[in-house]
Design a protein around this nucleic acid. Structure first.
Lengths: 97, 97
DNA sequence: TTGATAGGCAAGTGGTTACTTGCCTATAGT
DNA sequence: ACTATAGGCAAGTAACCACTTGCCTATCAA
């Protein structure tokens, strides 16, 4: 569980995909491909992005729903929220007033 | 910066090392080796652990001080604290009362 | 039905990485 | 001085991973 999450986060392209989904939820594979290419200047194939999405989905960080021939992807930040708590627990985080 | 941290966290052995340093601070290389072997049943060489510590230190997650022939390692959890905030920001974390 | 669009499956490849083995340096105890 | 302990350096290996290439399926529009 935690292993899949950390492994998914280890790749910079996957983190960029999470960034994009955080900014604009419900994107299709092709939309993500276009953004990576245009906005982030990443020369990467569609299949590569598809495989990245599969890794993110296996880790529970991305969820998807199919509608017709479209598949929409959404970010699920929940698994991230407590993932580093095992090392940051004893010091309580300062409250943001 | 963030890349080194996520890459460092991607390996389960390194996460176990962080666990051990969180539990008992200021351990030497041999102490960590012994704990990994005894407590976690990890058959791993001293050099492997040394290399893991180097990765963790490069990421800023572990700091070390030398005293004589001993080198003491301590956990630095600071880099972890806000590393996932870019995806969890919009939802403020519920306060722990 | 035909063609275009959105996506999936699978094999192959190059680069990275975790780990080992062997040897070397430095500090401390006798 | 000699030996044991704590650790470092470097080369080699095997497994893993990101990415590509090629082909296939499904949905929609004309």
């Amino acid at each position: 569980m935690a292993d899949e999450i950390f492994k998914a986060l280890a790749d910079p392209t996957r983190r960029t995909i999470l960034d994009e989904l955080a900014e604009s939820s419900g994107q299709t594979l092709f939309e993500i491909c276009t953004r990576l290419s245009m906005k982030h200047r990443l020369g990467i194939s569609r299949q590569a992005v598809s495989q990245h999405l599969a890794v993110l989905e296996a880790a529970g960080l991305v969820e998807s729903r199919r509608e017709g021939r479209y598949k929409f992807h959404t970010l699920n930040p929940d698994p991230l929220k407590r993932i580093t708590e095992r090392w940051t627990r004893p010091d309580q985080p300062e409250s943001t007033p």
